[in-house]
Write a protein that binds this DNA or RNA. Structure first.
Lengths: 112, 112
DNA sequence: ACTTACAGTAAGTCATGACTTACGAAAGAA
DNA sequence: TTCTTTCGTAAGTCATGACTTACTGTAAGT
């Protein structure tokens, strides 16, 4: 599943910051490196991870490369969260109704 | 922000698997350890991380501890994803309209 | 009181991955 | 062509964190 790569890609703080930098206008690697206290190759490596996760796309512009956020990149993770969250809520609801039934049973037995 | 802890908590595969095990009914630590090829203390450590991230709650039951998924645990991460995703989509829409305007300008200049 | 079952913490090991510097490649400018 | 800019990759270092075993604590059963 691709949401795994998205999770590990966004887990690292500086890599997540780089991704957030690309929310707006596209940026080239040197620009990104200037925004963070790490070397340019480090930024390239982070961009590679983000690209493999589908979060980011690259576009050649002369010798430079313009990186931008992929609009569909976060979709798999969102879908995953929705299903898991739904499951948790369902189980929670089941437990609540279960406890209510137990309560009713206890009251019924008490009124015999 | 608390979504950071959620991200790092869910990034690890076995820890994510443990969290998913708790989607349904609550489980005690030994049960969880039996489902995975790691020791019981390792599971305890993972549960600690999940608990600090707000993804999981514990409830004492004799000497055992019942762990369950917190229904609100994923909410901060979902909110974060929504805002970022919205920003990306907005920027993408801006770019598209920008390109359309450029196209119109070019056509206009061409028709002079 | 003693034993059993269940769990958290401490301490140490080891692999992963986030960095660095050095190097090579490709495209535009002089 | 040569120089410059921009970038990716290779290789090596170092810290973090995911494990292990050993120990301690606590509640329940006999």
């Amino acid at each position: 599943m691709t949401y795994e790569r998205i999770l590990t890609a966004l887990a690292d703080p500086t890599r997540r910051a780089i991704f957030e930098d690309l929310r707006g206008a596209p940026l080239q690697v040197t620009r990104l490196a200037n925004r963070h206290p790490i070397s340019r190759p480090a930024v390239s490596q982070h961009l590679k991870v983000l690209e493999l996760a589908g979060l980011v796309m690259a576009q050649a512009e002369g010798t430079a490369r313009l990186y931008r956020a992929d609009p569909k990149g976060l979709a798999p993770l969102r879908a995953y969260l929705d299903t898991v969250w739904g499951d948790v809520l369902d189980a929670f609801a089941d437990e609540v109704t279960q406890q209510m039934e137990d309560q009713n049973t206890r009251n019924r037995d008490q009124n015999r």
